[in-house]
């Protein structure tokens, strides 16, 4: 056995500084960013860049095509997404000429009624920002107050930080963000969570994008009481309620995606269903459409079972008028019952 006290004391090579300890502060800029910037050669000033080609290389057209074909309506939302994509593409082109561009602020706020597609769009946004190189991973972590705010002193900060760590490299989606702030209780732990979020939104823009979502009026009130939050959000995007025609299109899209179709008379019944359902309380736009279709599928299945006859592809894929007509929406349209609404759509 070699006496260990005579082992040669190996030295760290002078050319390499380990652990990054010799360059404090460099972490703040993000570990990968500076390296990438150095690797790319700067183009000469008279070079030309084909933006369409750049765009094709990022593959964002897939995202846009999916947006257009899978999401009905939402024109203002889609426009804003296009603008953001254009900005990021131009920034990339500028970077190739060595023009410095500060990283744009892409924290967003989505407002709109339930079921208007806020979560769905947020998910696509994460994918889009990933393809454009703005985010490193492009996943989406969806949270509400309960995930961020603790139950006792000292519980909130670790909880919020834990969520932030999970969201790093992607999008943090905070649904009904106004619940973080309780006006009536200034010692509410939500305030602590907001402060941590504010800090990260300001200082770690390269690490994540925060998207807040909720009803418009309550979100506005939230920003009035938390001006710091409002000013850190560059994009306030409002999701309009769908028109009857749009709901109808959404329904058709959904049943096609599920491998069903309407019988000729069901098409009309479905539209009438939507027309009535829209006027009833607790209408949740596209989500109500989805629920209606789920219920119709149940009735369709029971109908086939009860008929006790051999079935073919045609029967298995066709939703007929009666699958919708037995909904309570039709039964008591004038006395709009809402107590067990979600079960009776």
């Amino acid at each position: 056995m070699t006496p260990p006290d005579r082992l040669p004391g190996s030295k760290i090579p002078a050319t390499r500084v380990g652990f990054g300890m010799a360059r404090p502060g460099s972490n703040a800029a993000g570990p990968q960013a500076p390296e990438e910037a150095e690797e790319k050669e700067t183009l000469p000033p008279d070079a030309r860049i084909d933006l369409a080609k750049e765009r094709a290389e990022t593959g964002i057209d897939d995202v846009f095509n999916a947006l257009d074909s899978e999401l009905v309506g939402l024109a203002p939302v889609k426009n804003r997404i296009r603008e953001i994509a254009a900005l990021l593409l131009v920034d990339r082109a500028r970077a190739q000429f060595g023009l410095s561009t500060s990283r744009p602020n892409l924290h967003m706020c989505f407002t709109g009624s339930p079921g208007t597609g806020k979560t769905t769009v947020a998910m696509r946004m994460a994918d889009l920002l990933y393809r454009l190189g703005y985010l490193r991973r492009g996943h989406l972590i969806s949270v509400t107050r309960d995930d961020l705010v603790g139950q006792y002193v000292g519980h909130t900060a670790p909880k919020t930080k834990e969520v932030l760590k999970r969201a790093m490299g992607g999008v943090l989606f905070i649904d009904e963000a106004y619940y973080l702030y309780r006006e009536d209780n200034e010692r509410d732990y939500g305030q602590e969570s907001i402060e941590i979020l504010l800090q990260v939104m300001e200082n770690q823009r390269e690490d994540l994008v925060v998207i807040l979502a909720g009803y418009k009026d309550r979100m506005d009130a939230f920003f009035v009481s938390n001006p710091g939050m409002g000013s850190r959000i560059a994009h306030h995007i409002d999701f309009p309620d769908y028109t009857l025609q749009e709901l109808d299109d959404i329904g058709k899209l959904m049943i096609r995606a599920e491998g069903y179709k309407f019988s000729p008379d069901a098409e009309k019944t479905f539209r009438e269903y939507l027309n009535r359902r829209m006027k009833q309380p607790r209408f949740a736009n596209a989500r109500s459409v989805r629920n209606a279709i789920e219920r119709a599928r149940l009735r369709h299945a029971s109908r086939l079972m009860e008929a006790d006859k051999p079935v073919g592809k045609e029967e298995l894929t066709t939703l007929s008028s009666e699958d919708f007509l037995s909904s309570r929406v039709f039964a008591n349209s004038d006395s709009a019952r809402t107590s067990d609404d979600s079960l009776t759509e």
């Binding site: 570990p31 932030l164 992607g170 690490d207």
Partner: peptide, 15 residues
């Protein structure tokens, strides 16, 4: 640290 996707969160804890 469970359910993390990106290294930045872990490196932050190291720091």
């Amino acid at each position: 640290m469970f359910d993390l996707t990106d290294a930045a969160g872990v490196l932050a804890e190291v720091n």
